[in-house]
Design a protein around this nucleic acid. Sequence first.
DNA 1: CCGTCCCATGTGAGCGCTAACATCGAACCG
DNA 2: CGGTTCGATGTTAGCGCTCACATGGGACGG
Lengths: 323, 323
Amino acid sequence: MSDVAALAGVSHQTVSRVLNDHPSVRPETRSRVLEAIATLGYRRNLAARALVTRRTGSIGVVTPGSALFGPTSTLVALEQAARDSGRYVSVATLRSFGPDEVVPAVEHFLAQGVDGIVVVAPRTDTVAALGSVQAPVPVVVVSSAPDLVGAGAVAVDQEAGARAATEHLLASGRRTVVHVAGPDEWFDARDRLRGWRAALDAAGVPVPPPLPAGWSAADGDVIGRRLVEEGVPDAVFAANDQLALGLLHAFRRAGVRVPDDVAVVGFDDEPGSAFAAPPLTTVRQGFEELGAHAVRVLVDALGGAEPTRELIAPELVVRESAP
Amino acid sequence: MSDVAALAGVSHQTVSRVLNDHPSVRPETRSRVLEAIATLGYRRNLAARALVTRRTGSIGVVTPGSALFGPTSTLVALEQAARDSGRYVSVATLRSFGPDEVVPAVEHFLAQGVDGIVVVAPRTDTVAALGSVQAPVPVVVVSSAPDLVGAGAVAVDQEAGARAATEHLLASGRRTVVHVAGPDEWFDARDRLRGWRAALDAAGVPVPPPLPAGWSAADGDVIGRRLVEEGVPDAVFAANDQLALGLLHAFRRAGVRVPDDVAVVGFDDEPGSAFAAPPLTTVRQGFEELGAHAVRVLVDALGGAEPTRELIAPELVVRESAP
DNA sequence: CCGTCCCATGTGAGCGCTAACATCGAACCG
DNA sequence: CGGTTCGATGTTAGCGCTCACATGGGACGG
């Protein structure tokens, strides 16, 4: 920086002012400094800047380390929203979900001096781990955890989505709806299950036992085969599109017609779902909106606002698998 | 840090030594310092550390800002590989691919003092943009760009994958193979096209004109309808799984049987592809390996080694759509 | 015409850390 | 038993930047 100052014939402080868009620099001086910067290929040292300003202009994101559609979509959306607010993103992905991975990741971000932290915590244990960290910066959790203390929270309203899906199936004349549930440690899975149950209850329909599964199409296939053996129900609401794809596969194999014999609804609206056989009725989550909200809550908290909780409404997308 | 030193009754330098695992600290002193750190909840300031060491222990990743399967899988793999090497990752996603987005992103990372940069550059224009930045740290490009100067490069051998797919179709008795090509600005699309052509040439089979498309299932559907109208070929090799799903959809609609009337092969092996109708023969790319290689090349370059180029072999996964 | 204000710029200090060197005492060796 | 070595610790300086304050000169008002 002093090199730039010398070349431009000003003090280092004036260079700093140019870099930070301080108003009281003569235009002529400013352009002289900018020229010197370009000539020397100077790049400011953000570490030194962070040291004195105590702000890095970056936010830390902790997210599950799988290539699952939901988390990765959220990550991309978060990054874009953060950059729209002039911030960069540091990422830590998790192989496990407990404190042993979450805590060090958060600690690192705090040591790094991030302005705030977003934790994509789809599982209960991740949120539990979060309780043991004392963070001097705002923390926003992307998750519908019911018991977050002092942290902001943003989530898609999984329960509403599941309710809409179930109601749609009932409204189209199906007598009952079987639910293929995601892993119980995932909030999303629990909430979808709850929404499904609520819709059945509200309609006065008996609630069949939910069928527990993972998130994969292979799991859906296994459940589908079992259903074929034990008797295919009127309608199935799968906790995500992958499970639904597995179900469709098993039904197709067995000659069970969708939607004639059984209607199938998924959750996520993955890219390929519109072209499944048959095209899948599903629930679309607004990941972009989710990321934008999370960053906005974080930035507001940075500005002194109380961290809030926000719920985003998902959207039912009706296709042939459940018209 | 001085608070910790005072509480432990040592100098700040001893605290620093404990933090950096310096050998010559008495175990008793070390534990006293660690206790003081725990008591005070002290976290070291990495900005200050970076200022003097001139290393941040982080690497910058520039990657396309879409939720496409390939780039996001690569991103996750990169992050995990980086963390296995003790580094954290900063991310910048790109909405466009030209210099106007790439250059500022790289400049930011350099200002931030990253130890190295990985650019996931699936498109030609991104690599071109890279030429205009002078980086004082190692840069690794994840891309099969033919003309990278001074940068390391890591890629999956798209051409070999495409060749394997095409050869498989020919070996199963198909007379020719039509290619639904990805966008021409993408290296992957070009390389897959080249591999397809090479396989046909090698077999002495006439090369039908490739059918240009995007990457989406909707595009595949459109092309599929056109093929149905104009005459369905023996076999189709689609540039990715989404396109293949669209093709399957169009064929199914038209009563064209897969694989009896036409065999279909995709590329990527996305999670749902094994449960498509029919299950999709495709080419699996090793994204984890890709990420691990990229980080290894970067770390080697950090250690003074010449940046190298590495090519990863993909794997043909045979399923029912092209047995 | 002088005091006041404000705009443009400069000066000095210090953010929290590590590298380099200084110091001190104990162990070791001939 | 003195010199040497080395392990354990302390002292000092400075990384590159911004903040707070100082300075100086023109515009403006009475």
